[in-house]
Design a protein around this nucleic acid. Structure first.
Lengths: 117, 117
DNA sequence: ATTATATATTGCAATATTACGATTAAATTA
DNA sequence: TAATTTAATCGTAATATTGCAATATATAAT
């Protein structure tokens, strides 16, 4: 009689620190070209709506909406309802956190110490 | 008679620039806590082998091997065969490219321009 | 009230990812 | 040569992701 085999297909987050999980979650969020494109367009135009991105990128409305939700869930963007539209923009605080976390991670590798193998 | 419906479940890379795809691919590669942990351990110990990481992280040998392959495929690490072991280390050039690409991306958002919505 | 506009959600199909055991491959050691 | 060590690959199971059409929801305009 079997109770649990093990969690197949699921990331074993408990093996890692909160910082490792957070860094990975942020990296994963920007780990799709559509979400990179969305962020770049938001940065350029300050704010924009779903429909703009559908035009700009060329994916279906539902698909863009889904990508926006993922970026929102990780906190990198925020949306404000304006009539029938929703105005999206970068969340400056989270963007700063993203930058700081990644910078810190990158800097831990000191290029002067020859890392060869 | 139907030839192509469309590519379900597959990222539509042709919609994006090479730079967007490259940035996303690198972000995706570090978008898993196990791969973050592997990179951090490589940075700390300069080089290490599969078995070390299995001990350190606590995932199965095959799983660590798979994560190592993903990091190798994107070019962030390299492996050198040494007897029965394979010594892994960071690829300094690619690490530098990673850093430069992300830095450039982060900087395009200028915090002074109030991005609110 | 009805129609138009815009986005979110649901449902579905297909591929991708995560994880592990078992096996294979390749070099080292006894 | 045979046994040991180490890592890669194969096979499999389960979940996650990607993408779209269709539908639902909610506000604005007629």
């Amino acid at each position: 009689m079997q109770y649990i085999i093990f969690n197949m297909g699921v990331t074993q987050k408990h093996l890692f620190t909160d910082q490792q999980n957070e860094l990975a979650a942020l990296a994963k969020a920007i780990g799709h070209p559509a979400r990179i494109a969305i962020l770049q367009h938001l940065i350029q135009s300050n704010t924009c709506i779903n429909g703009d991105l559908v035009q700009e990128i060329g994916l279906a409305q539902a698909t863009i909406s889904q990508h926006l939700r993922e970026l929102k869930e990780v906190g990198l963007i925020q949306g404000t309802i304006e009539g029938t539209k929703v105005s999206y923009c970068i969340h400056p605080g989270k963007w700063n956190e993203l930058q700081t976390l990644f910078d810190g991670f990158f800097k831990t590798f000191d290029k002067c110490c020859n890392s060869s193998c």
